[in-house]
Design a protein around this nucleic acid. Structure first.
Lengths: 296, 296
DNA sequence: CGTCATTACGGAATGCGTAATGATA
DNA sequence: TATCATTACGCATTCCGTAATGACG
């Protein structure tokens, strides 16, 4: 098999049609250049250049080989470049899982930050509940995940990406709506739309603990998983709900949000998780971007 | 810049994920293989493989580099192969000029023979009168040409591809049509459709010489260039015409052809011409194919 | 202690540059 | 005779294989 240096030599001579100039371009003297061409021709067993001491011309085979040689050289350069970029975490594809709720605030910011600072990086996004993300992460089906706590598996690591307060979502016509802020006590008798203990375990436990802790007996009239479904029911005046502040981004008509005053703050957290042994430099880049984000 | 051997080494290790097996596949021992990988990583300044004494894994950069390496290796193989084929005249593109009349018989045979015996060869065809073909040949705009004699330019060579008799084309209702064969003398008083002295110089001179030589004063009622136009006028009973035998392939309704008995045969010739210094092996192939053809 | 990648080292081959040669207009 | 490609030759570098070392289970 021939060699990149032979391809470069041939391309230079074929373009210059002059050994002397080609050698100068390649920063070498004519003799080794001449020999490289001979070696290449011997390897291919094909005459590529018709040369007299007065002129150099391409043969038909040489004309056909030249663009191939140029293409191979270009590809080799490009492969070098892109591989360095990938190694630096400035190029490549990262498969990222996310929970539906993270799409309201963190995910759009993240996507646009990646687009801006790492234009050659592609995020392959996949919405899943946290439990499935953990499974896909361990199985290597995704590279990183925006999940709810906790992340306890020993093969995984995570950092906190977002901590936001819970707010109360309630129909505009609800008796509590005129109040500027609400305390857990205000929620005592109200019909409450809660979270499913399986599919939305984190929100279920968080809201239950919060209410039980302050002595409130919640009157749960529905249990759902997705925040947008919950807000739809709030809008239909089925009840009120505790949702993360980012839900305000959804802007349902006739649904208002009120801060929830708590003695001890109990933020809703979102984590970025990945395999501890992952070597993809894109993960470091992602962590760095998320750390620099305001809500981090 | 890295080297094909390094690419091959990397591809083998990346595919086997085992230095020992990869080395065996490459017919070498582990140490040089190990060093080639290190050299490649040093050249790229990128870690491609994560290796412990127990396992070999690709890094993200390695995963991105592997398909590139494989692609480059494939292209190099393909370029080698196609270049050898071109050098052997079994692949490539040949720009071939031809006269309209050669399309009736020789050209279709040639094209189908090339398709059958040289499937990787493309003929780029271009119809022109002989004079223009000679000019394009000299200018390098075409590589070979099917032309009428003579080809006298010192930079060109030609071989005879076809020699066919002249026949008489006449309307089915013509008084001479019932005769099985005709002699020049029979054409004495007949209205004759002749050839233009400029655009169809060869046929013009050939038919004029033939008639004058045998003492006939031709009564030319029209002068045209293209044989199919001439036959159209024959069909319209404008007159009779002398055409090459291949014209019978055109099968005009109500036009019949009769052999022309001559004391000295005066064949219509078709030549294949090319630049004397042309090095394209396809020309030799073409010559060989045409020599093997029956009418050659 | 066995497996497997890496480092150490000696010999062969490759590739460069300088100098000489050969061919062409 | 001048130009330009090729051959001759010496030196440095590269690369392979064998042997030794080191890490991990």
């Amino acid at each position: 098999m021939f060699d990149f240096s032979q391809l470069r030599c041939f391309a230079a001579v074929a373009e210059e049609l002059h050994f002397g100039r080609a050698a100068a371009r390649l920063n070498m003297t004519q003799p080794p250049l001449s020999r490289q061409i001979q070696v290449l021709e011997r390897i291919l067993d094909v005459r590529l250049l018709e040369r007299t001491s007065r002129s150099v011309r391409l043969t038909a085979a040489g004309r056909s080989f030249l663009p191939e040689a140029q293409r191979i050289l270009r590809l080799a350069e490009a492969a070098t470049h892109v591989t360095r970029q990938v190694a630096a975490g400035r190029a490549g594809v990262l498969k990222l899982g996310f929970t539906a709720a993270s799409a309201y605030d963190v995910l759009p910011c993240l996507v646009s930050a990646v687009r801006r600072t790492l234009p050659d990086v592609t995020l392959a996004l996949r919405e899943m509940v946290s439990k499935d993300q953990i499974a896909d992460l361990l199985a290597g089906r995704i590279d990183a995940a925006l999940v709810r706590p906790p992340v306890t598996h020993p093969d995984l690591t995570a950092i906190r990406v977002l901590a936001e307060p819970l707010v109360v979502a309630l129909p505009a016509a609800h008796p509590l709506a005129p109040r500027d802020r609400l305390s857990p006590g205000d929620l005592g008798g109200a019909a409450l739309i809660g979270y499913a203990p399986n599919e939305a375990r984190y929100f279920h436990d968080l809201t239950r603990d919060l209410l039980v802790e302050t002595g409130i007996q919640p009157r749960i009239v529905q249990q759902l998983t997705q925040i947008h479904s919950i807000l739809a029911l709030v809008r239909a005046a089925v009840g009120i709900a505790l949702v993360p502040a980012a839900a305000e981004r959804l802007r349902f008509a006739d649904v208002v949000f009120r801060p929830l005053a708590l003695s001890a703050p109990r933020p809703v957290e979102l984590l970025l998780a990945w395999r501890r042994d992952a070597d993809d430099p894109l993960i470091a880049q992602l962590v760095s971007i998320l750390s620099d984000m305001p809500a981090g």
